[in-house]
Every structure is written in structure tokens, then in C-alpha cells.
Simulated assay, not measured.
Amino acid sequence: MVQLVEDERLDYLLAENLRIIQSPSVFSFSLDAVLLARFAYVPIQKGAILDLCTGNGIIPLLLSTRTKGTITGVEIQERLANMAQRSFAYNNLDDRLKVLHQDIKEIPAMLGHGKFDVVTCNPPYFLVPEKEEKINANIHYAIARHEIHCTLEDVVRVSSQMVKQGGKAAFVHRPGRFLDIVTLMRKYRLEPKRIQFVHSRVDKPANTLLIEGIKDGNPDMKILPPLIVYDEKGEYSPEVRNMLYGENE
């Protein structure tokens, strides 16, 4: 059994046959997390994976079905970190999955550099606006969406510090920050190797960017075919249906 607090609910991750604790007033994961969890490379049999800005632990849960390695999430918000840990325990995964209630900027000094084979991160997408009223009044959502506690540079720098030589780091972000993220990855020795743009519909501009780099890798970037979320009927495309529900047709 799991202890739910206030307005929490226990949702299904259908494709993975897992459950996750969510709360509409604190945090609910988005498709972006699912896209990153499917895009990122993970070692199958063993290895150590770090997920920065883990929220309620959605990416570690999704990755747990693709690897037998250990996965550590890092989350600055105590409520979310607690939700993640309870979800890990409910799914009997707390022997491989754990969460640290920490600021990601403290992790290199805390755990040491170069400890992980893979680092993933679904970071806050938006700069902090000059006018405070433009930030969500719900502090949980504000922290998740805006660079209040960590910037894109913080995310890339810490990822580079934590990943092993030759290890991989994968991020999801907005295409508008494409040049920023590529510039920062190269600054911190994460050579971009794979990029995929995600479009809501085939005739719409990309609204999501997936990118993976290798620590001190050789320059050779591959742009993967675009991923389309909705078909012409407004329904999930086969690729996305498979990600969400495990449907292959």
C-alpha cells in the first residue's frame, strides 16, 4: 500500500505497467518527460544513471524498464522528492531507484565527479521574467517551469561534471534554446551527437527538442527523423501511442 497525501493520486504508466504518485497542485509529468526517457541511451544490464530535476520521479520510473542499472534522481523540492521516493517504493524499485532532495548545483561536491554512465535532465524551460506577476503563483509550478533555482548553464555544467569520460548526457528543451544548449554543451565538453525535433503535427513548427551528447566525444552530429505527436485526425501518432500505452499499431 501507499500513503497518499492531500490531493495526491496514483496514476498508471500503462506502457511500463507501473504506478506513479501525482498531484495537480504540485506536479504532474508531461509528454516531454516520456519523450526524453525514450530518446536517451541507457545501458541495459548495468550502470549508473543520474536524472537531474527529477520532479516526482517520472524519468527514473520510465527508465527502470529499459535498464537493470541504478538510477538516482535529484530534486530540490522536498514534496516532489518525497512523492518520487514513495512511487519507487510502491513499485518495488527502491533497491535500484533513489532520490536525493538536493540542489543540483551541490551534487558534484556531494557525490564526486565522473560517477555516472548517463545523465538525463528535463530542466526548467523559461528564463525568470523581469515582472514577478508573469511567474506562476503556484511556487511548485514556478520552480518547475522557470530558471529560479537552476539555469540551463547550471544543468549542462553539472551534467558534464557528473558523467564519466565517454558517458552520455541527454536533455529535452524548447527549440528556441537550441543554439544556447549546443553552445553550452560544447563549452562543458559534451559534444552533441544526436538531435531530434518533435512537432505537435506534421505541418507545425517543432515545439520540443531532444539532444544527447558524449563527454569529450568527436564531432559528428546526427539529426534524427522528426517525431510527430498527433496524426491528421488529432489522435496520438503510432510512435507516441506506443510510448504512452505500449501499443505497437
Score class of each variant (00 low, 15 high):
residue 227 L to C: 05
residue 134 K to R: 14
residue 232 E to Q: 09
residue 166 G to N: 05
residue 127 L to H: 11
residue 48 A to D: 14
residue 89 A to M: 12
residue 149 H to Y: 15
residue 30 S to A: 11
residue 181 I to G: 01
residue 29 F to K: 06
residue 90 Y to G: 06
residue 113 H to A: 12
residue 201 R to Q: 15
residue 148 I to V: 14
residue 203 D to N: 06
residue 19 R to W: 10
residue 105 K to Q: 11
residue 147 E to G: 04
residue 177 R to Q: 11
residue 17 N to Y: 13
residue 34 V to L: 05
residue 236 Y to D: 07
residue 139 I to P: 14
residue 135 I to E: 06
residue 12 Y to M: 12
residue 168 K to T: 12
residue 65 T to S: 14
residue 213 G to W: 00
residue 172 V to A: 02
residue 185 M to N: 07
residue 132 E to L: 13
residue 52 L to A: 02
residue 135 I to Q: 07
residue 176 G to E: 15
residue 82 N to G: 15
residue 20 I to S: 06
residue 200 S to H: 08
residue 136 N to G: 12
residue 43 P to V: 01
residue 167 G to N: 02
residue 56 N to C: 09
residue 196 Q to W: 12
residue 24 P to V: 14
residue 166 G to T: 03
residue 211 I to E: 03
residue 133 E to W: 13
residue 78 E to Y: 10
residue 138 N to Q: 01
residue 7 D to K: 05
residue 205 P to Q: 05
residue 8 E to L: 04
residue 241 R to E: 08
residue 72 T to M: 08
residue 68 K to S: 08
residue 214 I to C: 01
residue 110 M to Y: 13
residue 226 P to R: 11
residue 105 K to L: 07
residue 185 M to D: 04
residue 168 K to N: 09
residue 122 N to A: 10
residue 125 Y to A: 03
residue 37 A to L: 05
residue 17 N to P: 08
residue 94 D to N: 00
residue 154 D to C: 03
residue 73 G to L: 00
residue 124 P to A: 06
residue 109 A to D: 15
residue 106 E to V: 12
residue 48 A to P: 09
residue 118 V to M: 03
residue 85 Q to Y: 12
residue 99 V to N: 05
residue 212 E to W: 04
residue 121 C to A: 13
residue 95 D to C: 12
residue 198 V to L: 06
residue 32 D to F: 00
residue 193 K to L: 10
residue 76 I to K: 09
residue 213 G to A: 02
residue 34 V to Q: 10
residue 200 S to P: 07
residue 165 Q to W: 09
residue 146 H to R: 10
residue 247 E to R: 11
residue 220 D to N: 11
residue 192 P to T: 08
residue 145 R to T: 07
residue 72 T to D: 05
residue 186 R to K: 15
residue 236 Y to K: 10
residue 199 H to S: 08
residue 235 E to D: 13
residue 13 L to Y: 09
residue 87 S to F: 02
residue 197 F to Y: 00
residue 143 I to T: 05
residue 133 E to I: 11
residue 192 P to E: 10
residue 207 N to Y: 07
residue 234 G to K: 13
residue 174 R to Q: 15
residue 58 I to E: 01
residue 52 L to E: 00
residue 109 A to F: 14
residue 230 Y to H: 08
residue 160 S to A: 01
residue 247 E to H: 10
residue 113 H to R: 13
residue 140 H to E: 02
residue 40 A to L: 05
residue 88 F to W: 03
residue 209 L to Y: 00
residue 183 T to C: 13
residue 36 L to N: 00
residue 37 A to Y: 06
residue 230 Y to E: 08
residue 186 R to P: 12
residue 23 S to G: 02
residue 180 D to F: 05
residue 83 M to P: 03
residue 192 P to D: 07
residue 149 H to S: 14
residue 160 S to Q: 00
residue 45 Q to D: 15
residue 149 H to E: 15
residue 47 G to P: 00
residue 80 L to F: 09
residue 24 P to A: 10
residue 134 K to I: 13
